[in-house]
Amino acid sequence: MGIVKTEAIILDSAEYSETSKLVRVFSPARGKLSVLAKGARRKGSRVGAGLEPFTHVNLTLYLKEAADLGTLKECEVIESFAYLREDLIKLALASLYIEAIRITLAPGARNYSLFKLTLAYLHALRKCRDSTGMTVHFLLKLLKDLGFQPALKGCVRCGATERIRYFHLRRGGVVCAACAGETAELVALNPGEYRVLKKSVETPVKSVVRIRLSRKQSKALLELLIRMLEYHLETRLRSVRFLDQMMLEIP
């Protein structure tokens, strides 16, 4: 394949040997890629700063045919999203979003819409006041892209549209009070939260940022989406631990 140029978002970065870094990136044309950046840890490296998580970059790589490990040749920063380093809550929320992508995205799976969505989220998060609510909206769009869009039109058991009171994790949709039964897979959902959830899912990305959530709704829906993600991905998200602690400590 040889030299390849691609736009990318850095998902994760780890030290590799004394002087190098191994980064995982999200390329719209190539899905998740691992990139070895030789010399990136050396003093005065020209690429080190561009390889920090969340950074939007243009990469020039040497990539072999059918390989998902490239060697970095050049890295140009498009946007570093430096504001994340000045706000612990926004950083924790963006980490949750990026971790979900890192886990779900497959090598070689091109996904232009998810790339665009991720950039839109990182830009929207910069100026928003309710960063939790904004993350709820974009996590819902992310779930849709991944094929886990919640079924919200009516009870997933009987089809009823009245007295929706729970979200069923395994069934991936809402259930009414009559069908709920007793199961650990149910998460309580009040009418206000249900309404906001439905509105957010039905609204396109461009307009979704205008939907306002109360603080209580943002928190409850974020918890629900985290449980949904963890249930479907069958793993605990590591960033949730940091997020929980920051939410507790920073009012």
Partner: peptide, 11 residues
């Protein structure tokens, strides 16, 4: 050091 992506918290 703290690391949101690796789940390292102040504790």
């Amino acid at each position: 050091r703290l690391s949101p992506l690796r789940g390292v918290t102040p504790e």
